[in-house]
Design a protein around this nucleic acid. Structure first.
Length: 104
DNA sequence: CCGTTGACTCTTT
DNA sequence: AAAAGAGCCAACG
């Protein structure tokens, strides 16, 4: 039995470049509503290189607090640059059309 | 086993 | 529109 975070990682890895997904949708993809646990899994994520955490965002289209307004940290622009490769980031937010869905 | 915590989300004010 | 409160699940001590 894989742990919750493992399942989340698998799903997240399936998200194509230029697309993003919200915590809720990600949790739902694993048949759970643990959107909180999803975020915790990302924080704990030991598979950092294989997990595009920056591709996971909030449902309202904003980036997660992990790079939103971290004083002293400049990762904010780094994330925006990564998303700019395929996702149009407007005012620090992402359009719904860039949201990836597992329901095909 | 229970209480606290967290990269969240939804509803109401 | 912005802010606050309640609800949600999993991991840790």
């Amino acid at each position: 039995m894989k742990t919750f975070n493992e399942k989340i990682y698998e799903k997240l890895k399936l998200v194509p470049r230029g697309k993003v997904i919200s915590y809720k949708e990600l949790a739902k993809s694993v048949d759970s509503k643990a959107y909180r646990a999803v975020g915790t899994a990302m924080m704990n994520n030991k598979n950092a290189p294989i997990i595009p955490c920056h591709r996971v965002i909030k449902s309202n289209g904003e980036i997660g607090g992990f790079c939103g307004e971290v004083k002293g940290k400049k990762i904010l622009e780094k994330i925006k640059l990564l998303e700019s490769e395929g996702v149009e980031v407007v005012n620090g937010k992402i359009d719904r059309k860039y949201f990836y869905s597992f329901s095909s």
